[in-house]
């Protein structure tokens, strides 16, 4: 067989595989949105879910998802960024560093149900938190930290060496160099990573089943006191998120409109994750342009 034919076959194979991937994705989107979007009304988004009647909404679940996301990121981002700075700038290549690195990678590949059960054991039972938002956020932190560490490390390593040299050669200390040169330069990369991690957090169900719980107390959105039991801002209350809601409605729901609610919630979830991804790309490129070009 001559090389020209082989080349054509290889090209054909690549195109076919790419086409299959795109087609699958498009079909998935079409399926979820076509079934779900008709259910998504203003009323659906802003009314409470019901446990046995038809016509319940997803207001609390949507809020819980966003709130857990925010709490998770508040914990994850600083820890992950500092960890990434350590790995990129302070860790000396050697046995200890490669051990730390494999630990981080292992953490990233833990099945989320295992993280959920670990959370149940440690946060819910041992620490006595019960099913809470903070317990859920801590469980999510466990498998998001590795992502943040990795993203930060890569972003810092991609800062041109000349930039770092320029600063150090001016007699600027290492910490100041990190703060004023490396982190700003790496910021678009870190931000993109953080938003992509958000998408994962938003869609996570298994890790939250046993940590944030399957129920939400009735909430009063006028009550902004974070210590009150019925305040949506209380982090020590149980909180069923959107992804968990989809699961629980499907497996143990008593409402007659299970399909409609699940489809609608799925559509909202998919759109939210999509928005996160587009936002990440857009913000990343805008900030990168601002930092590097600006002629």
């Amino acid at each position: 067989m001559n090389s020209r034919i082989t080349d054509r076959i290889a090209t054909g194979v690549f195109y076919t595989i790419a086409a299959i991937m795109v087609a699958l994705l498009l079909y998935l989107f079409y399926f979820i949105l076509a079934n779900g979007l008709p259910q998504v009304t203003w009323d659906f988004l802003t009314s409470e879910s019901s446990s046995y009647k038809a016509g319940g909404g997803i207001r609390d679940q949507l809020f819980n998802s966003l709130y857990i996301l925010v709490i998770t990121m508040i914990i994850t981002v600083p820890l992950g960024v500092f960890g990434g700075v350590y790995m990129a700038e302070y860790a000396k290549p050697g046995k200890l560093t490669s051990f730390i690195r494999s630990c981080i990678e292992m953490l990233a590949s833990l099945p989320s149900i295992v993280v959920g059960l670990f959370g149940l054991l440690i946060f819910v039972n041992k620490m006595g938190l019960g099913y809470t938002i903070i317990g859920g956020a801590l469980a999510l932190t466990i498998f998001n930290i590795p992502v943040m560490v990795r993203v930060t490390e890569d972003a810092i390593n991609s800062v041109p060496k000349e930039q770092k040299e320029a600063s150090l050669a001016l007699g600027i200390t290492r910490w100041h160099t990190i703060k004023t040169v490396l982190l700003p330069y790496a910021f678009p990369g870190i931000l993109t990573g953080a938003i992509l991690a958000s998408g994962r957090v938003f869609g996570e169900a298994a890790a939250l089943l046993y940590t944030a719980g399957l129920s939400t107390p009735s909430l009063d959105y006028g009550n902004w006191n974070p210590l009150a039991d019925n305040s949506p801002l209380n982090i020590f209350r149980p909180a069923e998120t959107l992804a968990v809601h989809i699961w629980s409605v499907n497996t143990q729901g008593l409402i007659p409109d299970i399909r409609e609610v699940a489809n609608g919630a799925s559509a909202v979830l998919v759109i939210a994750v999509l928005v996160f991804n587009i936002l990440a790309r857009w913000l990343g490129s805008v900030i990168h342009k601002k930092l590097t070009a600006g002629k």
Binding site: P160, E162, Q163, E165, A166, S167, L168, A169, L170, G171, I172, T173, V181, Y185, L291, T292, G294
Partner: peptide, 19 residues
């Protein structure tokens, strides 16, 4: 090192201004 490098400036092969 901070004192030393303040007193001993360095210019590199390629201009490396900060962005």
């Amino acid at each position: 090192l901070v004192d030393l490098r303040r007193n001993v400036g360095m210019i590199f092969q390629k201009g490396n201004p900060f962005p």
